[in-house]
Amino acid sequence: MLKIGLLGCGRIGQVHARSVGQIEGAVVTAVSDAFDAPAEALAARTNAKVMTSEELIACADVDAVVIGTPTDIHYDLIHLAAAASKAIFCEKPVDMSADRIRDCISVVEKAGVPFMTAFNRRFDPNFANVQRRIEQGEIGAVEIVTIQSRDPSPPPVSYIKSSGGLFRDMMIHDLDMA
């Protein structure tokens, strides 16, 4: 059984909790959030324990962490999780600074832990189908690409302030798709 700790119980943390619930052999064992109410609500839905971030990362009952917190604390959580030998799935962007991202990569490599950043759209069947058709020459030479992205609902203003804004936060998906 893969035991997962969720860091961040807001909108994306809830999405990841639902996803973990669909994976045979995986379970959310612990959750953490800066606010009590979302942590307690998600813990109740997943039958997990509420912990501080530090407790969750140190917990022997957690094999891997999902970092779905505001971008400005990803760096510190990645360092803590790598030092604790936890596998890490981190929401994008890893950080707003390329130097700090390179430092995170170095820390993860030295720790030898699995690490993945949330570039989910490349795994979406519709995007994969378009890529396959382009690669097979079915569509022909691509001359212009227009990408339009939408989330199901707008994020809260507090998220926009700490994520680098919608262009940095969402455009990273557009660049990945291109």
Rank of each mutant, 00 (worst) to 15 (best):
M1C: 09
L2Q: 14
I4N: 05
G10W: 04
R11G: 07
I12L: 15
G13Q: 06
H16V: 05
H16D: 02
A17E: 09
R18V: 04
S19R: 12
E24V: 09
A26G: 04
V27S: 12
V28F: 07
A30Y: 01
A30L: 05
V31P: 03
D33Q: 06
F35D: 12
F35W: 11
A37L: 07
A39W: 02
E40K: 14
A43R: 00
A44V: 10
A44G: 15
T46G: 02
A48E: 02
V50H: 08
V50P: 08
T52Q: 09
S53F: 13
L56P: 08
A60E: 14
D63Y: 13
A64N: 10
A64R: 14
I67H: 01
G68A: 15
P70C: 10
P70H: 10
D72Y: 09
D76W: 05
D76E: 15
H79V: 06
L80Y: 01
L80E: 06
A81C: 02
A81G: 02
K86Q: 05
K86R: 09
C90W: 00
P93F: 03
V94R: 00
V94F: 00
V94G: 00
M96R: 14
S97C: 01
D99M: 01
D99A: 06
I101W: 00
R102M: 00
R102Q: 00
E109A: 03
V113K: 03
M116N: 05
T117A: 12
R121S: 14
F123P: 04
P125N: 09
N126V: 15
A128L: 12
N129W: 06
V130P: 01
R133E: 15
Q136P: 02
G137Y: 13
E138G: 06
E138R: 08
E138S: 09
I139Y: 12
V142C: 13
V142E: 13
V145A: 08
T146F: 06
I147P: 05
R150Q: 10
R150L: 05
S153A: 15
P154D: 12
P154E: 11
V157N: 07
I160G: 04
K161W: 05
G164F: 06
G165E: 09
L166C: 03
M170C: 04
M171G: 15
I172K: 05
A178S: 06
